[in-house]
């Protein structure tokens, strides 16, 4: 098929890779920022204070029930007006992903902490460990085991969702692909098929290893 040759054209593949890098960068930055925020949110969720709990609950439920694209619209078109921020598309994406990632991560953290049986805390206390020691040496390792597989899963989901950035105009891999297709409309009319196929594979190559890691972690640390 003639269309496939477009992939061999100079500059095409490198440009696609650059686009992929933008995708990975947005996902990576979001994850890095979402981590500390997520831990904070998770900790807040385990607090007894009813006001805090309600706020966290509303935050989590809202972010979860709205489609991510809707959240992106709200951030990009809405916040910009509201706070007079001139948030560019990439910034809006990162903002939304951080808030979304932190909410999901927070819920995971809460779940992990709550699933640790009280007897763990009690045994540690009776053995003489203080709060800090208990937390770092007994609770945290166990919480991480329950947390990690689902967290890696979340990272995969964030990577996939960065595809929505195209719709806000961010020049990531899909947009680059579309630019290439448009630019070569006459020489390579079949390029569409091949470019999208390559983009499909690129996402797969990034996400699949993560899924496998998540599954391995889950198997390794399967608890009864």
């Amino acid at each position: 098929m003639r269309g496939a040759e477009i992939l061999l054209q100079p500059g095409v593949f490198p440009r696609l890779l650059q686009g992929l890098w933008v995708t990975v960068w947005i996902a990576g930055a979001s994850v890095l920022l979402a981590l500390p925020l997520g831990l904070l949110v998770g900790w807040l969720m385990t607090l007894k204070n009813p006001a805090v709990r309600v706020i966290m609950r509303v935050y989590l439920d809202f972010i979860r029930i709205m489609p991510q694209l809707a959240l992106l619209f709200i951030a990009f078109y809405g916040f910009a007006q509201a706070f007079d921020w001139n948030l560019d598309a990439t910034g809006a994406c990162v903002l939304v992903f951080v808030l979304w990632g932190a909410a999901e991560l927070g819920d995971l953290v809460r779940g992990a902490l709550e699933s640790i049986p009280r007897t763990q805390y009690e045994s540690a206390k009776v053995l003489g460990l203080n709060s800090w020691q208990t937390f770092t040496r007994v609770i945290l390792p166990q919480a991480l085991r329950r947390l990690l597989p689902a967290s890696v899963n979340l990272v995969t989901r964030i990577v996939k969702t960065t595809s929505l950035a195209t719709l806000l105009g961010v020049v990531e891999v899909i947009k680059v692909g579309q630019q290439i297709i448009d630019a070569n409309r006459f020489q390579y009319p079949d390029a569409t098929l091949w470019i999208y196929a390559v983009i499909f594979l690129m996402y797969f190559i990034v996400c699949w290893p993560l899924s496998i890691v998540a599954r391995r972690l889950e198997k390794r640390w399967a608890h009864d």
Binding site: G3, T156, K160, T161, S163, L164, T166, L167, I174, I181, P189, D190, T192, L193, Y196, A197, I199, F200, Y203, F204, C207, W208, S211
Partner: peptide, 23 residues
């Protein structure tokens, strides 16, 4: 299962909507 879970819906849609007509 692996292919569809590790790729975004948007790309799948573009492939179907823009790519398939070429076939």
């Amino acid at each position: 299962v692996e292919l569809s879970r590790n790729t975004p819906l948007l790309v799948q849609l573009y492939f179907l909507y823009f790519g398939l007509p070429k076939l």
